[in-house]
Design a protein around this nucleic acid. Structure first.
Length: 266
DNA sequence: AATGGGACCTGCGCGC
DNA sequence: TGCGCGCAGGTCCCAT
């Protein structure tokens, strides 16, 4: 899915555009993405209600309504939200009191929508580890030294650290000159410190640039991000490294494509 | 506990 | 042009 920076961008835009606007009607072209409750109850629970708060927890987007119910949206890989006119490709469509629409877009239909009286009791929320911004350097070091696994899959393990996905794990490791295949236990103290700094730096830069649109992700106006042009290693296999000009390589790690510079990263 | 594979889905680019 | 394959920002579940 969109990673932490993309979801944060959506959250901030939604706060500006939909708070206080009543839901007038809901159409579901693909009701399967609504995981709970039934479509009928989902519709009855939301029509007539106004969103009063938008929350982001790692990569999960949560909209709180005036009756204190929560619409929990997990965008997974290809989910995004478009505010404005009605979209033909919307999987679920929320008609709003200002005459506009909030379209739930999701090419691959892997995303999930839930209407619940709480979100904190959801299993996948409870299992989330701290976000990078919630961690002190010391806590980060302790985490890195706890697990016996390769550093890249570790960074992407949401139960350990939440919010980092496949793009920003690669970017953070490239900036830190650390090979994605390194055992986390082998990282030197200064490498962990550098990684800590670079994870925050990469995520902050991505937020400032409104996220990466390398594929289906768009902001709520349907516009691309801006970070995709500033990515330094993701998707650059066979292209020259920005630092040393040698060829970027791509391998498979834990089932995910992983780009790195064999010359700069150790 | 760590790791690998498959599942969930659609759609794109590529080679033949 | 058509077809099969691999691959895609995520995560869960199972087997080893």
């Amino acid at each position: 899915m969109p990673e932490l920076p993309e979801v944060e961008t959506i959250k901030r835009d939604l706060e500006k555009k939909i708070l206080g606007k009543k839901i007038i009607a809901i159409e579901a072209d693909k009701p399967k993405v609504i995981k709970e409750p039934s479509l009928d109850k989902f519709r009855k629970g939301l029509v007539g209600k106004r969103p009063k708060e938008v929350i982001r927890k790692a990569k999960v987007l949560i909209i709180k309504f005036e009756d204190n119910k929560f619409l929990v949206i997990h965008l997974r890989i290809s989910g995004w939200l478009q505010y404005g006119k009605k979209e033909d490709k919307a999987r679920v469509l929320f008609k709003l009191s200002d005459g506009k629409y909030l379209n739930y877009m999701d090419q691959r239909l892997l995303g999930e929508l839930r209407l619940r009286s709480d979100y904190k009791d959801l299993k996948f929320i409870q299992r989330l580890g701290p976000e990078p911004f919630e961690l002190s350097l010391k806590e980060f070091k302790d985490i890195i030294r706890t697990k016996k696994t390769k550093i890249k899959p570790l960074l992407m393990d949401q139960a350990v650290i939440s919010g980092i996905g496949n793009i920003y794990a690669q970017e953070s490791l490239f900036e830190s000159k650390i090979l994605p295949t390194r055992q986390s236990l082998s990282l030197k103290d200064r490498e962990i410190s550098l990684l800590y700094k670079n994870i925050r730096g990469v995520l902050n830069k991505a937020i400032q640039n409104r996220g990466s649109s390398v594929d289906t992700y768009r902001d709520i106006d349907g516009r691309t991000g801006g970070m995709e042009e500033k990515l330094r290693v993701y998707g650059r296999q066979n292209e020259p490294c920005f630092k040393c000009r040698r060829s970027i390589k791509k391998i498979n790690l834990g089932g995910r494509g992983t780009c790195f510079c064999p010359s700069c990263q150790h």
